[in-house]
């Protein structure tokens, strides 16, 4: 009986030892990646993403992570290290404090520009729009990044249009919308928008700027129409109204200051005179 017990005991010991060895070798495998992970993982407080765990202190903890994130950003930037986990940090901050506006806008900027994480940037801003539906910055930044990085002018224009409708949005944001049309090649719509801006302008400075833009857009619009007309028909249009009739131009704009359009055949450009 005693012998049997001893044998059993020995087998159990051997089994245990081997288990420890194998689990250890697995652990070793994990630890070989340790150096790679530890730097980034340190800054991802995954457990803290549910704000309720922290009682009343979620806000103050969000502030702490905010400071930490700034430090992390500066530190990694200096070392020229990867910033791919930056979006996680700002995600945690905004989980803890869903109304922290700077964490969305500033955070998304950092995530996009330095982290090169377009998707994370977009997600962060969309989350901001859900949590802060009355803030103009989230749609504006989303539009701006669409324009800057994706060159997706249609999406950008849509986001700008949303931003403009939010309360407290600066007037200057309006100017982005015609500009997006300009970039898309739809000069006429852009120009109509500039005319609207001109009509609603409150001071002389703004009016002057708007008029200048109108002229630029109008020129572009007409030049484009005339060039395509010549390319298709092989001759110069008799007058500008022919362009509208044949569908090459959407319309001939009436300039607010009463100027008229001329076409210089030699220079192949549209002129504006009074």
């Amino acid at each position: 009986m005693k012998k049997l017990f001893n044998i059993m005991f020995g087998i159990i010991i051997v089994l245990l030892m081997s288990m420890v060895y194998f689990s250890n070798s697995q652990l070793m495998d994990i630890y070989s990646y340790r150096d790679k992970f530890v730097q980034d993982a340190k800054y991802i407080p995954r457990e803290m993403t549910n704000p309720h765990w922290l009682g009343d202190f979620n806000i103050i903890y969000a502030d702490f992570i905010w400071f930490e994130s700034l430090q992390y950003y500066g530190d990694r930037k200096e070392k020229k290290a990867s910033l791919e986990y930056l979006s996680n940090i700002f995600n945690s901050i905004t989980n803890l404090d869903p109304y922290f506006e700077q964490a969305y806008s500033f955070g998304a900027t950092l995530v996009g520009t330095d982290g090169h994480n377009w998707k994370g940037c977009e997600q962060l801003l969309k989350k901001g729009m859900i949590n802060l539906p009355d803030d103009w910055r989230m749609p504006f930044f989303l539009g701006f990044f669409n324009y800057m990085w994706y060159k997706n002018y249609r999406a950008a224009e849509l986001w700008f249009k949303i931003a403009v409708k939010k309360p407290g949005c600066p007037e200057r944001i309006y100017h982005f919308i015609p500009f997006m049309h300009f970039r898309m090649g739809d000069y006429y719509t852009g120009m109509l928008m500039w005319i609207e801006i001109y009509n609603n302008a409150k001071n002389e400075q703004e009016k002057k700027g708007a008029l200048q833009n109108i002229k630029v857009y109008a020129k572009k619009h007409l030049t484009k129409a005339i060039r395509s007309f010549i390319r298709d028909k092989g001759h110069i249009p008799e007058n500008l109204y022919v362009l509208v009739k044949t569908g090459y131009a959407k319309g001939i704009p009436n300039l607010p200051d009463g100027s008229k359009f001329y076409y210089n055949v030699v220079k192949d450009s549209v002129l504006i005179h009074k």
Binding site: G55, D56, F57, I59, I60, D63, W66, F67, L70, F100, E101, Q102, F106
Partner: peptide, 22 residues
């Protein structure tokens, strides 16, 4: 530390004021 709040000035003071009593 208030300047590090980037635009949301006073957030930290308000946060602390409201959470320290708790």
């Amino acid at each position: 530390l208030n300047n590090a709040m980037l635009g949301e000035y006073g957030k930290l003071v308000v946060d602390l004021e409201l959470t320290l009593p708790i």
